[in-house]
C-alpha cells in the first residue's frame, strides 16, 4: 500500500509539472513514461473506486499532496479522486494547453495514421467521433423523452445513475457518492439548471433495489444543501416533478414539503385582491397552482392523493370557503376541485 501511495504522489507531481514551464525539459521518452504512469493511475481508480477502505487512504494521500503542491505551485489545479479515471486525458490536455510543452512532444499526440498503429493509446479518433455524433444527434432530436427531459439530460442522467448504482451497491460509499455530486455541481460553474435535469433523469431510472438506494442518497444530498430541494424543484418543470412524484414516494414527500414552503411565502394583498410573494422565493400563485394541476393530471393514485392532501391542508388551516383567507382554499377554488 505504501508503494501505491508513493506512486500516486508521483503522478500528482507529474500532472502538476505538466502544467508548468518545467515541462520544456521533457523529451519524447519522458512523455511516453508519463503517459504510462497516468495509465497505471487509471487502473488504480477502476480497481479501488468502490472500495471504501482503500479509496479513503488514496483520497487522504491525494488531499495531502494537493495541499503540498498548492504551496509550491499555486497555479496547479488540485486533483479529485474521480478524476484519476481520466489521468491520460488530463495529461494530454495539460500538454496541449501548455505553451512550454516541447514542440517535438506534441506531434506524437496527434492521431497521425502513420504513428497511430504503434501508439494507439493516443488515438483520439473514436472519442472525437462519438462525442460529435452525440452532439449531432442531440441537436437533431426534438426528442424530449416521455418525462419531458431533453435526450442529452436523459442519457447523462442514466450514466450518472449507473455510476451511483454501482457505487452504492457496496456499503460505505454513501459519502463518496455525495462528494461526486458536489464536484459535479461545483464544475457546473454556477449554472446548475442543466445538471438538475441530469439528476432528475438519474432519479427516473427503472425501479429496483439499487436504484431505490441511489434515489434515497440523491434526495438526502439535495436535502443537506440549504434550499437545495427548493432550487431543484423550481428548476425542474412541473411535468417532470409530477413524473418523479408518481415514481418515488420519497420525492413526492420532499416535493410536497417544497410546495407548502412556497405557499407559506405568499400573502394575500387585500387592496390588489391577489396572492403576492413576501420573500425572495420567486413563486407566484399561478405557478404554484400550475404545479398542483400537473400533479392532478398524473392519474391515479397521485391525483386522489393530491386532492386529499389539499383538502387536509385546507381543513387544518381553518376550512374557510371564501377567497383570500387561506391559500389552500384559493388553490382548490382555482383548480375547481
Amino acid at each position: 500500500m505504501e508503494a501505491v501511495l508513493r506512486h500516486l504522489t508521483n503522478i500528482l507531481e507529474l500532472l502538476a509539472v505538466s502544467q508548468t514551464d518545467r515541462v520544456s525539459e521533457w523529451d519524447r521518452h519522458t512523455a511516453l513514461r508519463a503517459f504510462q504512469w497516468a495509465e497505471y493511475c487509471e487502473q488504480l481508480h477502476s480497481r479501488f473506486q468502490s472500495n471504501p477502505a482503500v479509496r479513503s487512504a488514496l483520497e487522504a494521500a491525494l488531499s495531502d499532496t494537493n495541499r503540498r503542491l498548492r504551496e509550491t505551485l499555486p497555479s496547479c489545479s488540485p486533483v479529485m479522486f474521480s478524476e484519476l479515471a481520466q489521468c491520460q486525458h488530463m495529461l494530454l490536455v495539460h500538454l496541449l494547453r501548455n505553451p512550454s510543452a516541447p514542440n517535438s512532444v506534441i506531434p506524437m499526440l496527434f492521431p497521425d495514421p502513420k504513428t497511430a498503429a504503434q501508439e494507439s493509446q493516443f488515438d483520439q479518433n473514436s472519442l472525437i467521433t462519438c462525442k460529435s455524433a452525440f452532439n449531432l444527434l442531440c441537436s437533431t432530436s426534438d426528442g424530449t423523452s416521455s418525462a419531458g427531459l431533453q435526450a442529452e439530460a436523459v442519457v447523462r442522467g442514466t450514466l450518472l445513475g449507473d455510476l451511483l448504482n454501482s457505487l452504492l451497491s457496496r456499503s460505505g460509499n454513501d459519502e463518496y457518492a455525495r462528494t461526486l455530486l458536489d464536484s459535479m455541481l461545483h464544475d457546473s460553474a454556477g449554472k446548475p439548471e442543466s445538471l438538475y435535469d441530469v439528476i432528475a433523469a438519474a432519479l427516473l431510472s427503472p425501479d429496483d433495489e439499487t436504484s431505490c438506494v441511489t434515489r434515497r442518497c440523491v434526495l438526502a444530498w439535495l436535502r443537506e444543501r440549504e434550499g437545495g430541494l427548493s432550487e431543484v424543484c423550481r428548476s425542474l418543470s412541473p411535468g417532470i416533478c409530477a413524473v418523479l412524484s408518481r415514481q418515488s414516494p420519497e420525492f413526492k414527500q420532499e416535493y410536497w414539503g417544497v410546495l407548502k414552503q412556497w405557499a407559506s411565502c405568499l400573502e394575500f394583498d387585500v387592496l390588489e385582491s391577489l396572492w403576492v410573494p413576501t420573500s425572495d422565493e420567486p413563486v407566484t400563485f399561478m405557478k404554484l397552482t400550475d404545479r398542483f394541476k400537473d400533479l392532478l393530471n398524473s392519474g391515479p393514485p397521485l391525483k386522489e392523493e393530491t386532492e386529499a392532501e389539499l383538502k387536509t391542508l385546507k381543513r387544518e388551516a381553518g376550512d374557510f370557503h371564501v377567497k383570500g383567507l387561506c391559500i389552500w382554499t384559493d388553490i382548490i377554488i382555482q383548480l375547481k376541485l
Binding site: S82, L160, S183, M184, S188
Partner: peptide
C-alpha cells in the same frame, strides 16, 4: 461536469 466525474475514461 458530468464527464469529468464519471469515473470512466
Amino acid at each position: 461536469a458530468t464527464v469529468k466525474h464519471a469515473g470512466l475514461t
